[in-house]
């Protein structure tokens, strides 16, 4: 069969989601953010919510998320996305509202806002990209940086005596009454991406059904910050991140 016969509109089985526009994303090659952006774009469209979604972008690498996904956005101050999202959702209850935050934003400077929004059971989804490093500012230590892991501000490796321990904020969130769905996923393989898509869809639906807060952590790579190739970063993540940040659902009360 000639290739021209295959490349026909009716045979198209995968293309860049429509909501993801043509603006080139500023992320480094192989960055997990792009995959999650694609999933968010797909799910919003699949739920028929293009006109009723407001995203809240953070400070961090995803600060420009609003440039790439063609929905309405509010760009929040560092760490404050859950407070911003709280107000939007309470004031427009029929809107789909989510925050998109990194580890520094969510688990460090915005810990109070995250914990309290989740504890109030705000009908929002928090998407939490955990790559154990501050990417945007050039690879400094994050609250989720692993023990012994080297970053620009712990160049000799994270040391508990100096820096304390990596924060498992998702485990913390699972213990809060306000959360209905807390899960930890990844996007390094096709299988993992499909699972993450299901998790995000479920979280978004929970928020529209008024079931409470959902937190979807996505253990991610930062190959630039980790100073590895994208492929090697995925492998490193499997070997080092997954044992500490174990994948799977931590809490799901939505079927009860």
């Amino acid at each position: 069969m000639d290739i021209k016969e295959i490349i026909q509109p009716e045979n198209m089985v995968y293309h860049k989601p429509d909501l993801l526009n043509d603006v080139p994303m500023h992320y480094c090659p192989g960055c997990s953010h792009g995959v999650v952006h694609k999933l968010v774009s797909e799910i919003v469209a699949e739920m028929g919510m293009n006109e009723k979604t407001v995203g809240v972008s953070p400070v961090g690498c995803a600060v420009f998320a609003y440039k790439y996904i063609d929905i309405d956005w509010e760009e929040a101050a560092h760490g404050r996305a859950p407070a911003v999202a709280t107000a939007i959702k309470r004031l427009w209850p029929d809107r789909l509202v989510f925050t998109y935050q990194g580890d520094g934003d969510l688990a460090c400077i915005g810990t109070a806002e995250s914990i309290h929004a989740l504890n109030r059971g705000e009908n929002i989804t928090i998407i939490f990209i955990n790559n154990a490093i501050y990417g945007m500012t050039g690879g400094q230590m994050a609250p989720t940086t692993l023990m012994g892991m080297k970053t620009a501000t712990c160049p000799y490796g994270r040391d508990a005596k100096l820096h304390g321990y990596p924060l498992k904020i998702t485990e913390l969130a699972a213990n809060l009454e306000g959360t209905c769905y807390v899960t930890r996923q990844s996007v390094h393989t096709v299988g993992a991406i499909n699972k993450t898509k299901k998790a995000l869809r479920k979280a978004f639906e929970n928020s529209m059904q008024g079931k409470g807060s959902s937190l979807v952590e996505i253990v991610s790579t930062c190959n630039s910050g980790w100073k590895m190739s994208p492929e090697k970063a995925n492998k490193w993540m499997e070997e080092n991140m997954f044992p500490y940040y174990q994948l799977g659902d931590l809490k799901d009360t939505t079927n009860q």
Binding site: M1, E5, I6, N11, V13, Y14
Partner: peptide, 21 residues
């Protein structure tokens, strides 16, 4: 046309077509 390449592509660069022979 399994779409694996396109699914993992962070930048949405790949369009995949599939046809039964």
């Amino acid at each position: 046309g399994c779409t694996s390449c396109a699914v993992v592509c962070p930048d949405g660069c790949i369009t995949v077509y599939r046809k039964k022979e």
